Lab assay of single mutants.
Amino acid sequence: MDVFMKGLSKAKEGVVAAAEKTKQGVAEAAGKTKEGVLYVGSKTKEGVVHGVATVAEKTKEQVTNVGGAVVTGVTAVAQKTVEGAGSIAAATGFVKKDQLGKNEEGAPQEGILEDMPVDPDNEAYEMPSEEGYQDYEPEA
């Protein structure tokens, strides 16, 4: 019985440690998101679009440190934060509304985080759909 109880105690310690790591990862992701939003706020009209992409990228980098179902929630929060940063930029006159959601080359930025393969159960990952990809044929 002692062996059984000791095993359960060790398992509990492992769960607590994993929860603490997840909590730490979420806190880091939130900190990076805040950094990115402050970065966007300090940019001029020309830099705002690039700044919004930076927020998304920093958040995406930190999301990889967070495991399990938390990833889905962090990704949703990050996307809403990026959308909010863009709205703030438009409201303050840093950028025109028609410039939001495009990178410096004018290509749409939507789907940055949505296409990231995420499995809350950590069982399997699927690649994003290939609808947006084109076949590449090298020139002879």
Results as ranks from 00 to 15, higher is better:
K10S: 02
K80A: 07
A69Q: 14
V3M: 10
S129Y: 08
E131T: 09
K97I: 14
D98T: 07
D115P: 12
Y125W: 11
Y133L: 11
A107H: 11
V66P: 01
A76F: 03
K45N: 02
E13H: 08
A17K: 13
V52D: 00
A89Q: 03
E130G: 03
A27P: 00
S9A: 03
E130T: 05
Y125G: 12
D135W: 06
V118H: 14
K6G: 01
G7P: 01
E46T: 10
E20M: 06
D98I: 14
F94N: 05
S129Q: 05
G86C: 12
T81E: 03
P108S: 12
V63L: 13
P138K: 09
G68Q: 03
E139M: 12
G67Q: 11
E46R: 00
K60H: 09
A19P: 00
K96F: 14
E139D: 07
A124Y: 10
E130M: 06
D135T: 12
M1E: 00
Y136H: 05
V37K: 01
G93M: 06
E131S: 08
V70W: 03
G7Q: 09
V52T: 00
F4N: 00
A19Q: 02
G93N: 12
Y125S: 14
K6L: 03
V71L: 14
K45D: 00
Q24A: 02
V118N: 07
V82S: 08
P120V: 04
E110G: 04
V15Y: 14
S87E: 01
P117L: 07
V77E: 01
G73S: 05
G106F: 04
I112W: 15
E137C: 10
Y125R: 04
P128N: 12
V3Y: 03
K34Q: 04
F94E: 07
V15I: 14
A85V: 14
P138R: 09
V49E: 06
E83I: 05
E137N: 10
E130F: 07
A11K: 00
A76C: 15
E114A: 14
L8A: 02
Q99L: 02
D121E: 06
G31V: 08
L8K: 00
K21N: 03
S9R: 14
G67I: 10
N122T: 02
A76E: 10
T59R: 02
G47S: 14
G106I: 05
V95P: 07
F4S: 00
D135Q: 15
A19R: 03
S42W: 14
A107N: 11
D115I: 04
V26C: 04
E110Y: 09
V66A: 09
K58Y: 14
V71G: 03
V16H: 14
Q99I: 10
Y39A: 02
G7I: 04
V48S: 02
G86S: 11
L38S: 01
E123D: 01
A140R: 11
E57P: 04
E130W: 13
T92Y: 04
D98A: 12
Q99N: 07
H50P: 05
E105Y: 12
K10W: 06
A27I: 14
Q79D: 07
K6A: 09
M116S: 09
P120A: 06
T92V: 08
L100R: 02
L100A: 07
L100P: 01
Q109G: 02
K60T: 05
V71H: 04
P128E: 08
V82T: 03
A30P: 02
V16A: 07
V16S: 07
T72K: 08
V74W: 10
A91M: 10
K10Y: 07
A107E: 09
V52N: 00
Q79R: 01
P120H: 05
K58R: 00
K21D: 01
E35N: 13
